[in-house]
Design a protein around this nucleic acid. Structure first.
Length: 281
DNA sequence: ATGGCAGAAGCATTCTGA
Protein backbone atom coordinates (compact mmCIF):
# COMPACT_ATOMS: atom_id res chain seq x y z
CA UNK A 1 0.00 0.00 0.00
CA UNK A 2 1.53 3.26 -1.17
CA UNK A 3 0.88 6.45 0.78
CA UNK A 4 2.30 9.81 -0.30
CA UNK A 5 2.40 13.45 0.78
CA UNK A 6 3.12 16.40 -1.50
CA UNK A 7 2.99 20.14 -1.00
CA UNK A 8 2.06 21.04 -4.57
CA UNK A 9 1.92 24.87 -4.17
CA UNK A 10 -1.39 25.22 -6.07
CA UNK A 11 -3.28 22.14 -7.23
CA UNK A 12 -4.54 23.94 -10.35
CA UNK A 13 -1.13 25.12 -11.52
CA UNK A 14 0.42 21.69 -10.81
CA UNK A 15 -2.51 19.56 -12.04
CA UNK A 16 -0.79 17.88 -14.98
CA UNK A 17 2.30 17.13 -12.92
CA UNK A 18 0.17 15.55 -10.19
CA UNK A 19 -1.89 13.36 -12.52
CA UNK A 20 1.24 12.35 -14.40
CA UNK A 21 2.93 11.37 -11.15
CA UNK A 22 -0.17 9.40 -10.09
CA UNK A 23 -0.11 7.53 -13.40
CA UNK A 24 3.57 6.66 -12.93
CA UNK A 25 3.52 5.71 -9.26
CA UNK A 26 -0.07 4.49 -8.77
CA UNK A 27 -0.33 5.52 -5.10
CA UNK A 28 -3.25 4.30 -3.03
CA UNK A 29 -3.42 7.53 -1.05
CA UNK A 30 -2.00 10.95 -1.92
CA UNK A 31 -2.21 13.79 0.60
CA UNK A 32 -1.84 17.31 -0.82
CA UNK A 33 -0.99 20.59 0.88
CA UNK A 34 -1.16 24.19 -0.32
CA UNK A 35 -3.92 23.46 -2.80
CA UNK A 36 -4.69 27.23 -2.80
CA UNK A 37 -8.23 26.85 -4.06
CA UNK A 38 -11.76 27.20 -2.64
CA UNK A 39 -13.68 23.93 -2.43
CA UNK A 40 -16.11 24.82 -5.21
CA UNK A 41 -13.21 25.42 -7.63
CA UNK A 42 -11.15 22.31 -6.82
CA UNK A 43 -10.43 20.21 -9.95
CA UNK A 44 -12.13 16.98 -8.84
CA UNK A 45 -12.79 15.44 -12.24
CA UNK A 46 -9.18 14.63 -13.28
CA UNK A 47 -8.73 12.55 -10.12
CA UNK A 48 -12.12 10.84 -10.36
CA UNK A 49 -11.30 9.87 -13.95
CA UNK A 50 -8.21 8.11 -12.61
CA UNK A 51 -10.39 6.16 -10.19
CA UNK A 52 -9.78 8.18 -7.04
CA UNK A 53 -12.05 9.62 -4.39
CA UNK A 54 -11.19 13.14 -3.23
CA UNK A 55 -11.89 14.95 0.03
CA UNK A 56 -10.93 18.59 0.41
CA UNK A 57 -10.62 21.35 2.99
CA UNK A 58 -9.63 24.45 1.06
CA UNK A 59 -9.80 28.21 0.89
CA UNK A 60 -9.10 30.90 -1.67
CA UNK A 61 -5.44 31.69 -2.43
CA UNK A 62 -3.82 30.25 0.68
CA UNK A 63 -3.34 26.95 2.47
CA UNK A 64 -5.76 24.12 1.65
CA UNK A 65 -5.40 20.35 2.04
CA UNK A 66 -6.83 17.32 0.23
CA UNK A 67 -6.75 13.52 0.38
CA UNK A 68 -6.94 11.57 -2.87
CA UNK A 69 -7.59 7.85 -2.44
CA UNK A 70 -8.22 4.78 -4.56
CA UNK A 71 -9.70 3.11 -1.49
CA UNK A 72 -12.95 3.96 0.23
CA UNK A 73 -12.79 7.07 2.44
CA UNK A 74 -14.71 7.08 5.73
CA UNK A 75 -15.14 9.26 8.84
CA UNK A 76 -13.90 12.49 7.32
CA UNK A 77 -13.04 15.38 9.64
CA UNK A 78 -12.01 18.85 8.49
CA UNK A 79 -9.99 21.08 10.79
CA UNK A 80 -9.74 20.69 14.54
CA UNK A 81 -12.69 18.97 16.16
CA UNK A 82 -12.24 20.19 19.73
CA UNK A 83 -13.57 23.45 21.15
CA UNK A 84 -10.51 25.67 20.90
CA UNK A 85 -12.00 28.20 23.31
CA UNK A 86 -11.83 25.56 26.01
CA UNK A 87 -8.08 25.57 25.47
CA UNK A 88 -7.92 29.25 26.50
CA UNK A 89 -7.11 30.49 23.02
CA UNK A 90 -9.64 32.83 21.45
CA UNK A 91 -8.40 32.73 17.84
CA UNK A 92 -10.32 30.48 15.51
CA UNK A 93 -7.72 27.95 14.49
CA UNK A 94 -10.00 26.49 11.85
CA UNK A 95 -10.07 29.66 9.73
CA UNK A 96 -6.91 28.61 7.95
CA UNK A 97 -7.56 25.32 6.18
CA UNK A 98 -4.60 23.19 7.22
CA UNK A 99 -6.00 19.87 8.46
CA UNK A 100 -8.08 17.02 7.09
CA UNK A 101 -8.32 13.41 8.24
CA UNK A 102 -10.16 10.23 7.38
CA UNK A 103 -10.19 6.47 7.88
CA UNK A 104 -8.99 4.55 4.83
CA UNK A 105 -8.46 0.79 4.61
CA UNK A 106 -8.20 0.44 8.37
CA UNK A 107 -5.76 3.34 8.71
CA UNK A 108 -6.37 6.77 10.19
CA UNK A 109 -4.85 9.24 7.73
CA UNK A 110 -4.14 12.72 9.13
CA UNK A 111 -2.96 15.30 6.59
CA UNK A 112 -1.50 18.58 7.89
CA UNK A 113 -0.08 21.79 6.51
CA UNK A 114 1.68 23.30 9.52
CA UNK A 115 2.05 27.11 9.42
CA UNK A 116 5.43 28.38 8.29
CA UNK A 117 5.81 30.91 11.09
CA UNK A 118 7.73 33.55 9.12
CA UNK A 119 10.40 34.37 11.74
CA UNK A 120 10.77 33.42 15.38
CA UNK A 121 10.00 36.91 16.71
CA UNK A 122 6.75 37.26 14.73
CA UNK A 123 3.06 36.81 15.55
CA UNK A 124 3.00 34.10 12.91
CA UNK A 125 5.56 32.12 14.87
CA UNK A 126 3.32 32.32 17.92
CA UNK A 127 0.45 31.07 15.74
CA UNK A 128 2.59 28.18 14.52
CA UNK A 129 3.40 27.00 18.05
CA UNK A 130 -0.23 27.29 19.13
CA UNK A 131 -1.38 25.47 15.98
CA UNK A 132 0.95 22.60 16.83
CA UNK A 133 -0.45 22.54 20.36
CA UNK A 134 -3.94 22.25 18.86
CA UNK A 135 -2.72 19.39 16.71
CA UNK A 136 -1.56 17.68 19.88
CA UNK A 137 -5.04 18.11 21.41
CA UNK A 138 -6.58 16.82 18.20
CA UNK A 139 -4.49 13.65 18.32
CA UNK A 140 -5.33 13.14 22.00
CA UNK A 141 -8.99 13.39 21.09
CA UNK A 142 -9.05 11.44 17.83
CA UNK A 143 -6.42 8.71 18.19
CA UNK A 144 -7.09 5.64 20.29
CA UNK A 145 -4.27 3.51 21.60
CA UNK A 146 -4.57 0.69 19.06
CA UNK A 147 -5.35 2.88 16.04
CA UNK A 148 -3.12 2.52 12.99
CA UNK A 149 -2.17 6.11 12.18
CA UNK A 150 -0.33 7.93 9.41
CA UNK A 151 0.34 11.58 10.26
CA UNK A 152 1.65 13.15 7.08
CA UNK A 153 2.24 16.54 5.54
CA UNK A 154 4.31 19.68 5.31
CA UNK A 155 5.42 20.31 8.88
CA UNK A 156 7.64 23.30 8.09
CA UNK A 157 10.09 21.94 10.67
CA UNK A 158 13.43 20.23 10.16
CA UNK A 159 13.39 17.72 13.05
CA UNK A 160 17.19 17.61 13.42
CA UNK A 161 20.22 19.53 12.22
CA UNK A 162 20.98 16.76 9.70
CA UNK A 163 17.73 17.74 7.96
CA UNK A 164 19.19 21.14 6.91
CA UNK A 165 21.85 21.74 4.26
CA UNK A 166 23.66 24.36 6.38
CA UNK A 167 22.59 23.77 9.99
CA UNK A 168 25.08 26.25 11.44
CA UNK A 169 23.66 29.02 9.25
CA UNK A 170 20.04 28.37 10.22
CA UNK A 171 20.50 27.23 13.83
CA UNK A 172 17.73 28.55 16.06
CA UNK A 173 15.90 30.20 13.16
CA UNK A 174 12.53 29.47 11.62
CA UNK A 175 11.94 25.74 10.88
CA UNK A 176 14.99 24.90 13.01
CA UNK A 177 14.29 26.41 16.43
CA UNK A 178 14.16 24.52 19.70
CA UNK A 179 10.60 25.75 20.36
CA UNK A 180 9.32 24.35 17.08
CA UNK A 181 11.08 21.03 17.55
CA UNK A 182 9.73 20.71 21.09
CA UNK A 183 6.22 21.54 19.86
CA UNK A 184 6.58 18.86 17.19
CA UNK A 185 7.87 16.34 19.72
CA UNK A 186 4.89 17.17 21.90
CA UNK A 187 2.63 16.29 18.96
CA UNK A 188 4.45 13.01 18.38
CA UNK A 189 4.72 12.23 22.12
CA UNK A 190 6.77 9.15 21.40
CA UNK A 191 3.76 7.61 19.67
CA UNK A 192 5.12 7.97 16.13
CA UNK A 193 8.08 6.99 13.98
CA UNK A 194 9.67 9.17 11.29
CA UNK A 195 9.38 6.76 8.33
CA UNK A 196 12.28 8.26 6.41
CA UNK A 197 14.76 7.81 9.27
CA UNK A 198 14.05 4.08 9.51
CA UNK A 199 15.91 3.65 6.23
CA UNK A 200 18.26 6.65 5.96
CA UNK A 201 20.39 7.91 8.85
CA UNK A 202 22.59 10.37 7.00
CA UNK A 203 22.25 14.03 6.10
CA UNK A 204 21.84 15.35 2.54
CA UNK A 205 18.22 14.31 1.92
CA UNK A 206 15.80 17.16 1.32
CA UNK A 207 12.09 17.52 0.49
CA UNK A 208 12.04 21.32 -0.09
CA UNK A 209 14.32 23.67 -1.99
CA UNK A 210 13.71 27.44 -2.07
CA UNK A 211 12.74 28.82 -5.48
CA UNK A 212 15.27 31.60 -4.89
CA UNK A 213 19.02 31.73 -5.18
CA UNK A 214 19.29 28.66 -7.40
CA UNK A 215 18.73 26.52 -4.32
CA UNK A 216 17.79 23.31 -6.14
CA UNK A 217 20.75 23.43 -8.52
CA UNK A 218 23.04 24.06 -5.51
CA UNK A 219 21.14 21.31 -3.60
CA UNK A 220 20.54 23.68 -0.71
CA UNK A 221 17.44 22.04 0.74
CA UNK A 222 15.60 21.12 3.90
CA UNK A 223 13.71 17.98 4.95
CA UNK A 224 10.43 19.43 6.25
CA UNK A 225 7.82 17.09 4.70
CA UNK A 226 7.26 13.99 6.80
CA UNK A 227 5.35 10.73 7.06
CA UNK A 228 4.97 9.76 10.69
CA UNK A 229 3.46 6.35 11.40
CA UNK A 230 2.23 5.03 14.71
CA UNK A 231 4.59 2.51 16.29
CA UNK A 232 2.12 -0.34 15.77
CA UNK A 233 2.70 0.07 12.00
CA UNK A 234 6.49 -0.10 12.15
CA UNK A 235 6.76 -3.79 11.23
CA UNK A 236 4.67 -3.14 8.10
CA UNK A 237 6.85 -0.28 6.79
CA UNK A 238 8.81 -1.48 3.76
CA UNK A 239 10.26 1.75 2.33
CA UNK A 240 10.24 5.53 2.44
CA UNK A 241 11.59 7.66 -0.40
CA UNK A 242 11.66 11.32 -1.37
CA UNK A 243 10.79 11.65 -5.05
CA UNK A 244 13.12 14.52 -5.74
CA UNK A 245 12.89 14.12 -9.51
CA UNK A 246 9.57 16.00 -9.28
CA UNK A 247 11.54 19.10 -8.27
CA UNK A 248 13.09 18.99 -11.75
CA UNK A 249 9.77 19.34 -13.57
CA UNK A 250 9.08 22.40 -15.69
CA UNK A 251 7.49 24.93 -13.28
CA UNK A 252 7.76 22.56 -10.31
CA UNK A 253 6.43 22.84 -6.80
CA UNK A 254 9.19 23.85 -4.41
CA UNK A 255 8.49 20.59 -2.55
CA UNK A 256 9.03 16.98 -3.66
CA UNK A 257 6.63 14.14 -2.77
CA UNK A 258 7.45 11.74 0.04
CA UNK A 259 6.23 8.15 -0.36
CA UNK A 260 6.00 5.10 1.88
CA UNK A 261 5.13 1.50 1.18
CA UNK A 262 3.16 -0.24 3.92
CA UNK A 263 2.71 -4.00 3.64
CA UNK A 264 -0.95 -3.92 4.65
CA UNK A 265 -2.25 -6.06 1.81
CA UNK A 266 -1.14 -7.21 -1.61
CA UNK A 267 -1.75 -3.98 -3.48
CA UNK A 268 1.20 -2.52 -5.34
CA UNK A 269 3.71 -4.75 -3.62
CA UNK A 270 5.71 -5.04 -6.81
CA UNK A 271 6.07 -1.29 -7.27
CA UNK A 272 9.53 -0.88 -5.81
CA UNK A 273 10.87 -3.87 -7.67
CA UNK A 274 10.26 -2.58 -11.17
CA UNK A 275 11.04 1.12 -11.05
CA UNK A 276 14.40 1.80 -9.42
CA UNK A 277 14.50 5.33 -10.85
CA UNK A 278 12.13 6.46 -8.13
CA UNK A 279 14.65 5.76 -5.38
CA UNK A 280 16.60 8.69 -4.08
CA UNK A 281 20.34 8.12 -4.29
C1' DA B 1 19.89 42.93 6.57
C1' DT B 2 17.78 42.42 2.19
C1' DG B 3 16.35 40.20 -1.78
C1' DG B 4 15.86 36.40 -4.76
C1' DC B 5 11.28 33.32 -6.97
C1' DA B 6 6.55 31.78 -7.43
C1' DG B 7 1.25 31.79 -7.08
C1' DA B 8 -3.27 34.19 -6.41
C1' DA B 9 -6.07 38.04 -7.04
C1' DG B 10 -6.98 40.95 -10.60
C1' DC B 11 -4.92 44.34 -13.86
C1' DA B 12 -0.52 47.19 -10.90
C1' DT B 13 0.78 45.79 -7.34
C1' DT B 14 0.37 43.53 -2.87
C1' DC B 15 0.27 39.55 0.15
C1' DT B 16 2.11 35.20 1.38
C1' DG B 17 5.20 31.51 1.46
C1' DA B 18 9.83 29.11 3.71
Amino acid sequence: MLIATWNVNSVRTRLSQITSWINNVNPDILCLQETKVADDSFPLAPFKELGYEVIINGQKSYNGVAIISKLNIENVTRGFTHNYEEKNISLDFNEQKRLISANINGLKIINVYVPNGSSIDSDKFNYKIKWLNHLSYFLDEQVKEDDLVCLVGDFNIAPRDIDIHSPQKYEGGIMASKMEREALNNVLKGRFIDSFRIFEKSTGHWSWWDYRNNAYELNKGWRIDHIYISKNLSSKLKSCVIERSQRENLQPSDHAPVLINLKIDNQNDDYFDDDDDLFEI
